[in-house]
């Protein structure tokens, strides 16, 4: 016997109403806010080129902006670090001694500390 497909929401649908409440509040705020006049970009400006110039601290772009060289370098480092971190987290532990992450919920450590029988 088959049943019609059900939307898989997960538990606690009611909790999601909190998100809806937040949307209502934000929408009301936005609609009542007085935003400044849209200035827009100059006609025919090369937006992507301006972005590139802004990244490298070169003021050659037609749209004005700040310089982001330091942030560029830092984000490069951050991506590198994230990569290494992900690799480290995913690594399977080689042996007992070189364990840096408790990947079994600490069961082995608990048995060793409390002198219980190994499973």
């Amino acid at each position: 016997m088959t049943t019609r497909p059900r939307l898989n929401i997960g538990t606690n649908l009611v909790a999601g109403l909190g998100a809806f409440a937040l949307f209502v509040v934000m929408a009301l705020t936005i609609l009542n806010a007085s935003l400044p006049e849209v200035q827009g970009f100059p006609e025919g400006a090369n937006v992507t080129a301006s972005i590139g110039y802004a990244i490298f601290n070169l003021s050659l772009g037609s749209v004005p902006g700040e310089s982001f060289l330091a942030a560029f370098i830092i984000i490069a480092i951050t991506l590198d670090v994230a990569l290494d971190g992900a690799v480290h987290l995913a690594r399977r532990q080689r042996s007992e001694k070189q364990q840096t992450i408790l990947s079994d919920g600490g069961k082995r450590l608990k048995s060793v500390v409390l002198d219980e029988e190994d499973e």
Binding site: L35, I51, G65
Partner: peptide
């Protein structure tokens, strides 16, 4: 809104 490229960067 501000006509500045900072947001997109």
């Amino acid at each position: 809104v501000w006509g500045n490229i900072t947001g997109q960067t």
